[in-house]
């Protein structure tokens, strides 16, 4: 089902992930977050932006374990744990945060 933001329509896959990485913008991210029932805070943005940078560098969305470790290294131990990340993204940090970040579903995420 396509996603509509500010009168523009964006293609998504059957699970609502953005089809084209380059379609992403902050407004699109907010709409994606809304579809997941998430209210974006500073802390959400931090993780989403981290994921986008990670994807830029490695061309993949990291597995949860890798994401947790990498967040801990970049943003501090208090954030690099699954409790913190699941509080922000209750249905799975990799799955939900990747969707908001406009990335494809993480490899190995079933």
């Amino acid at each position: 089902m396509p996603l509509e933001v500010n009168g523009k329509t964006y293609e998504t896959d059957e699970e609502g992930y953005l089809a084209n990485l380059s379609d992403w913008s902050e407004d699109v991210a907010k709409a994606l977050a809304e579809s997941e029932g998430l209210e974006m805070t500073e802390n959400h943005w931090e993780v989403v932006n981290f994921l986008r940078e990670y994807y830029q560098e490695y061309q993949i969305a990291p597995a949860v374990r890798v994401l947790t470790k990498a967040i801990g290294k970049k943003l501090g131990k208090d954030k690099g744990n699954s409790k913190y990340l699941y509080e922000l993204f209750p249905y799975g940090p990799a799955k939900q945060a990747c969707k908001v970040a406009g990335l494809p579903k993480p490899t190995g995420c079933v």
Binding site: Y58, Q59, I60, V66
Partner: peptide
């Protein structure tokens, strides 16, 4: 075609 060579650099994190 997608360039997947940068992904090899992520192996260390895995």
């Amino acid at each position: 075609v997608k360039n997947f060579s940068p992904t090899y650099r992520a192996l260390g994190e895995y």
